[in-house]
Simulated scan of single mutants.
Amino acid sequence: MDSEILSLYTWTPGVCFRHPELSETDTVKVKTLHPRSSPDQDLRVCRRCLLALEAIRRAAAEGAGDVYEPGHVAE
Rank of each mutant, 00 (worst) to 15 (best):
H72R: 14
W11E: 02
S7D: 13
V15Q: 01
L51K: 00
L53M: 14
S23T: 13
P13D: 14
V67I: 15
R57A: 13
E75T: 13
V28G: 01
L22N: 06
A64G: 10
A61R: 11
E62Q: 14
T10R: 15
D42Q: 14
H19F: 14
E75W: 11
E54D: 12
A61N: 13
H19N: 14
L33K: 06
R36F: 12
G14I: 05
L43I: 04
I5N: 02
K29H: 06
C16R: 00
G63A: 13
R47I: 13
E54L: 09
A60Y: 08
C49S: 08
R58S: 12
L43M: 10
L6R: 00
D66V: 03
L8I: 01
K31H: 12
E75F: 06
E62I: 15
Q41S: 07
V45M: 01
L6T: 04
T32K: 11
P13N: 10
A61C: 15
G65Q: 12
F17K: 08
S37V: 08
A64H: 07
H19S: 14
V28L: 01
R36S: 13
S37A: 11
D40F: 00
Y68P: 04
E62C: 12
D66H: 10
R36T: 11
P20M: 05
L33Y: 07
D26F: 04
I56Y: 11
E24F: 10
D26Y: 07
A61L: 05
V67A: 15
S38A: 11
I5R: 02
H34A: 03
P13F: 04
E62W: 01
H34I: 00
S23P: 08
T32V: 10
Q41P: 00
E62R: 09
P39R: 15
L53K: 15
G65S: 09
L33H: 04
R47H: 11
A52V: 05
T25K: 09
I56Q: 13
S37I: 07
R48S: 14
A52K: 15
R57H: 08
H19Q: 05
H72Q: 12
I56G: 07
R58Y: 03
V28Y: 01
S3T: 10
D2M: 03
C46A: 02
M1C: 08
S23L: 04
S37P: 00
E69L: 04
E62N: 12
P20F: 03
D2Y: 02
S7H: 06
A60F: 07
C46Y: 05
C46Q: 01
A64S: 15
L33Q: 05
P39T: 10
R44F: 02
Y68A: 02
V67S: 13
S3M: 11
A52Y: 05
A52E: 15
R57F: 00
P20Y: 03
L33T: 08
V28N: 01
H72V: 10
H72K: 13
V45Q: 07
T10D: 14
G71W: 03
S37C: 06
K31D: 00
G65K: 01
T12F: 03
K29D: 07
A64W: 07
V45W: 00
